[in-house]
């Protein structure tokens, strides 16, 4: 994939990720507050936004839960890495399954009350899936571009 496409992908991921932290931006420029209700609605489509599962930094909280924030950070960091070095080699499906397994296990085990929900575990398991999932998305986009060029 051309570096320009990777750059677009990185900026889209960055904008989406920064949107989660809108409350920080309101401190920089108060006009961002007008975007707050709209962004709350936007992220509610892709996250349950349960109060006790949001990441809290002092009085400020994220617009998505710890797990979703982890997934989006997991998508963002590799999108920066591919700008520096383009990945080569094929992805085996088992890699994604292994990356998804901790998150699935965490969701199941906390839902069954086998252990208490932990924001850190949710964040890390989400991050793991997000970062490996990115390479599947990247490979998919790569194949799409090659197909369209044919």
């Amino acid at each position: 994939m051309k570096r320009s496409y990777s750059l677009i992908l990185f900026f889209l991921s960055l904008i989406w990720f920064l949107g989660i932290f809108i409350e920080w931006f309101i401190k920089i420029d108060e006009h961002f507050v007008f975007a707050l209700p709209y962004l709350q609605k936007t992220y509610s489509l892709v996250c349950h936004q349960e109060k006790n599962k949001l990441l809290l930094f002092g009085e400020i909280e994220t617009l998505t839960c710890a797990r979703c924030t982890g997934i989006y950070l997991g998508l963002l960091l590799p999108s920066l890495l591919v700008l520096l070095k383009l990945p080569k080699g094929k992805l085996h499906i088992n890699i994604l399954l292994v990356a998804a397994a901790p998150m699935i296990a965490d969701v199941l085990l906390t839902s069954l009350n086998i252990y208490a929900y932990s924001k850190l575990i949710a964040f890390l398991t989400g991050f793991l899936l997000g970062s490996f999932g990115f390479f599947y998305l990247y490979a998919g986009l790569n194949s799409l571009i090659l197909e369209l060029k044919r």
């Binding site: 094929k90 499906i93 999932g133 599947y136 490979a139 799409l144």
Partner: peptide, 10 residues
Amino acid sequence: LIGARIINSK
């Protein structure tokens, strides 16, 4: 896109 990669890889 991710789904197709998974199915094709399988």
